[in-house]
Design a protein around this nucleic acid. Sequence first.
DNA 1: TGTACATCAGTGAACGCGCGTTCACTGATGTAC
DNA 2: TGTACATCAGTGAACGCGCGTTCACTGATGTAC
Lengths: 176, 176
Amino acid sequence: MFREKGFDGIGVADLMRAAGMTHGGFYNHFASKEELESAACDLAFDKAVANLTAMATQSGAARRTAFAAYVDRYLSPRMRDAAVACPMVALGGEAPRRGTALRRRFAAGVRHYIVALGEVMARPGRKAAQAREQAIVTLALLVGGLLLARGIKEADLALSDEILASVQNAVSGHAR
Amino acid sequence: MFREKGFDGIGVADLMRAAGMTHGGFYNHFASKEELESAACDLAFDKAVANLTAMATQSGAARRTAFAAYVDRYLSPRMRDAAVACPMVALGGEAPRRGTALRRRFAAGVRHYIVALGEVMARPGRKAAQAREQAIVTLALLVGGLLLARGIKEADLALSDEILASVQNAVSGHAR
DNA sequence: TGTACATCAGTGAACGCGCGTTCACTGATGTAC
DNA sequence: TGTACATCAGTGAACGCGCGTTCACTGATGTAC
């Protein structure tokens, strides 16, 4: 829900109602709303990173096709139109404006994501530093592309589609 | 101020105080806070696009070096550490969650930005469609790179610097 | 030049509302004997 | 097995606060005569 509406776009009462409870009981589980935000940030990143590390265990061609499918999905109209986005896209703009705890968890998430992406993009003849740099560039492309595509989807669907397609092309070129 | 704190991060009273007035007079100028947000969005994009179109009037080598300097600046630590960011980075995550008026102005801004960037990146032997696709990819790289670098700058400065450097490398490669 | 008046940007108190948080309580659960 | 009691997650009214917006007003400005 934070990723859908933003941290300030959803209140404790709504969150608890969605969980089938009343708002008063919230503080039996978290010391503050901020603490839940941090935990939710961790959870979102953990899931995304686990997805990648599972992919990294595959080897050779299987890993390459899995990664290509991952990029396809990430930059698909379906992903763009989903209410919930990747944590970096949904919360990246808010992260620097929030408290220390959240910012630390967000940075850790990005760090782990880059490491996992580097493992997935590793190739036999490629140096580790190169794979890492490529992972960073790929991540910037994915995040920037999806952020823009999502930001304009309601007002200019054609351009949104064009952005997804162009960035997908570029990522495929980079990953090759 | 919207770009610094987010649309919901700054109130009418604070905005008017910053303008040296009290909050009551606000509605002599705008029908609602949302209308000011839309106007501010336009203003931010107009300035950014004007910057690019001025560059596009230059020709040949001068334009190329001007563009290289632009990218250098966009992905510099100075830009990352500035309180106010590029409208796409600062507001891209919020745009899809806001009203129709704002979303339309945001989309128009992105559209114009891409056109202007395409003109700046045009090269004699290059087809217009290619220049446009390259502009889109470059924009995604710039926006994604700066968004991530800003999101983690407080908690992991080294990684933030690394992202800026890696993306800058990639953009230079693309623009060549 | 001088006077009367309309205009309208700016003032500041007040409004209703939703937020995060607190707290006295309820009532189901599990343990001790 | 049955009873008494402690625990503690969940309840819902209440709080203080800041928000966007409204409105009766003030007072400077510019125009008409």
